[in-house]
Simulated assay, not measured.
Amino acid sequence: MKTNRRYIYVAILLFIFWFALMDNVTAKLEITGVDGYKITTDNYTLAQDHEVMLAKDVAERVLNARISWQEQAALPQGIYYKDQVAVLMYHHLTGESVSLNPGVLTAGQFDEHMQLLKQEGFQVITMKQYRQFMLENALVPDNAVLLTFDDGYESFYTLAFPILQKHGYTAANFIIASDVDNPDGKKVPKLTWEQMREMKSAGMSFYNHTYNLHHYGIVDAEGGTRPAASNLLYINDENRNELNEEYYRRVIGDLALAERRLKEELGNIDSAIAFPYGSFNDRLLEASNSIGIDLKFSIREGLCSRMTPVAPRINKGDSTLSPDQFIESLKHAEPMMEMTINSSMVPLAWTQPQLRDGILLVPLSPLCKALGVEMDYDPDTRTLKLTPGSLSTDGVTLK
């Protein structure tokens, strides 16, 4: 009898799971358009970070606008991309002849990377050129490359710096400022302020990787962890997570301290940040903006354009890549698609339009931002309201 009862319980649970799954698959989205017109559709999906993707014809109807999406025109031979920048990301180098860690290049491999860039027609630019490109609409050479390092390892001084000078290149390093102020002899050695000052005088640059937020913090009572810079941490003594205001004070205080130390020690007059683990949210972007950090970098793959407010980077610190694989991946970086609304270019941060079962799905939030439309999406009730008007800080209200 007990066995039969167990089978019944299992069957009930499977039915509930199946029903919930089918409900999620077939759920419709109710949309109120900018003109008040209401439409219900199942031609939508949710991409990363709750990005609503709508069928192009539905988006045109609710926004009362014309949307197009097409590939960039073909480029002449030897030009792999233009008016864009490949931001390469490295971390640590080793002086050994072979690296036992796939995330650590040997100095010889890094030297070969730099030689191949020059040999194959790539143009390494400075952070100043990149800043002017992003913020002042300045031009960059075709096949432009910006070199960046994360975490401020001492190997940047002992191994990378001489190689960069040999090739006439500069690079930016995003440092964890607390590691410099409070060195830990038990960890992989980090740069000193003295070493950074010497390298800065030779053209290298150093920027914010937070003061002390490059770690995973506890985010729930079960001990789950996520990047501390982009999540509400769990306060164990009070059995709750941080409030939004508490989170904001914590991250803005940390970023401001790192900025202050960079200015005090290196005389920095400009700012940039690479978010730890590439993880960020709207509040972290707001905090960065409020203290004057105008260039932002992630670890998502892709080429960078003026349309990307948080720059993607291409990880080239993989010791398992052959030299041919390194350079060929740059030559064949996926070309950007151009999306326009009412014939005006639309900045696409991350989510590209997608073709599914013959239906073109377009990301809604960048379209709303381009039109000055407020977007109020409630995932619980599956309702979306679009209202003409001024934008909030992030352009989206997510209940």
Rank of each mutant, 00 (worst) to 15 (best):
D376H: 12
E51W: 06
V10N: 12
T381M: 06
A86K: 01
G78A: 07
T320G: 05
V396Q: 05
P335N: 04
A171W: 02
G168E: 08
V188S: 13
L116Y: 06
L371S: 04
V251H: 10
G372I: 04
V346E: 04
L147Q: 07
S319R: 01
N64Y: 09
K190M: 13
V396P: 02
G372C: 06
F19V: 15
Q165R: 14
S155D: 12
S230T: 11
L139Q: 08
Y248C: 05
H209I: 03
E334K: 15
T148P: 00
M22N: 12
F206Y: 09
H332G: 07
L100S: 13
N43T: 10
E154N: 12
D376N: 12
W350C: 11
L105D: 04
A107C: 11
A258C: 15
G224F: 03
I293G: 09
S97I: 03
G121V: 10
D35Y: 07
L14W: 12
T308G: 06
I176Y: 01
Y234E: 05
E286N: 15
G108M: 11
Y157D: 09
N268W: 10
Y234M: 07
N173D: 15
S201R: 12
I39C: 05
G78F: 07
F326T: 09
P189S: 09
I341T: 02
I176V: 14
G267A: 05
L135M: 08
F161A: 09
V346L: 06
I176N: 00
D380M: 04
K56H: 14
Y277E: 14
L348R: 01
Q352W: 07
S322Q: 00
Y157A: 06
P379K: 01
E374M: 11
I8M: 08
I67M: 05
P162Y: 06
G223C: 10
V58P: 01
A138T: 08
K166W: 14
Y216Q: 13
F326P: 03
H332F: 13
G121H: 11
E238G: 01
L232P: 03
P363E: 09
H209C: 03
K56L: 15
A55V: 02
F156I: 09
N143S: 10
P312A: 08
F156W: 06
Y248Q: 11
L371F: 03
A47S: 14
L348T: 01
D23L: 11
G278C: 08
F275Q: 11
A287M: 04
K296R: 14
A86R: 00
H209N: 06
H92D: 06
S344D: 15
F15Y: 14
T106V: 10
K200C: 03
F161D: 06
R283T: 15
A256T: 09
L386P: 02
V124F: 01
L303N: 05
Y44S: 02
F161G: 00
L391Y: 04
L46N: 10
I12R: 06
D150I: 01
Y207H: 09
V346N: 04
R356F: 12
E259Y: 00
N239Q: 13
I299L: 13
K2W: 10
T320S: 13
S365W: 01
N143W: 04
D294S: 06
V310P: 15
M199P: 00
E328T: 15
R5K: 12
Y234C: 08
R226F: 06
